[in-house]
Amino acid sequence: MVEGLGVGIGWRPEIDLTVERLDVDFVEVVAENLHADRLPESVRVLRGRGVPVLPHAVSLSLGGADPVDAHRVAHLGALAEALDAPFVSDHVCFVRAGGLDSGHLMPVPRTREALDVLVANVKAARADLPVPLALENVAALLEWPDAELSEGRFLAELVERTDCLLLVDVANLYANARNLGTDVGRFLDEIPLERLAYVHVAGGREHQGVYHDTHAHAVLPEVLDVLRQLKERVDPPGVLLERDDDYPSDAELAGELAAIRAVLA
């Protein structure tokens, strides 16, 4: 398992100074928004303080039928080297198909055939990355029919076949439990927690009967409860608060970080 990262927050340009002020142990950056040769001043400041900065990609489309885009992988790798990051991450999803970009992290069918495609893409990406790759479970509003594996088993086999790390998003897991009936306990029991890199926590809200993982609202106590269930099984190396819009005050963000620390205590 990855060595202790602590509690962190997603670095975003809008809240760069807030992130610098907050008491965080590590941060995560959206890889597509940064250039390896032109890192933002704030990120350089954080690196200068010794704060680990982890690149998190959203566009490799590892679950897609198309081959992995070598340029995107190269960018992610360059960023990892520029930031001296211990590993990088992306999602178990696809974002492109047939030349179209969905703009969303689309879930992959949990079939053996889809798993083979995913494994091939992950292996191809890993071959060109200078650091290990962690893969994150996504929140889905629908499930493809004819699933052959549970989400936990799907991820477990993916990790086993690719030797990648796991990035568990407990907010996504909560969303899937709410919207799709995913069994949280079973998911946590099935995934290889010894391969856990770190954990995502985020806020969301229900709209017209559907829970949306918005990253723009406060973290629900129920999401922290999922984190608590995870903590009962393993001490997560790191937990990161994701907030992507409608940023609250510094105090409110500090409060959310404190709530996460309280669960981990």
Partner: peptide, 14 residues
């Protein structure tokens, strides 16, 4: 908030 790059954004919830 005024970010380092000059982007001014609103703080929610006030």
């Amino acid at each position: 908030r005024i970010a380092r790059n000059g982007l001014v954004s609103a703080v929610q919830g006030l």
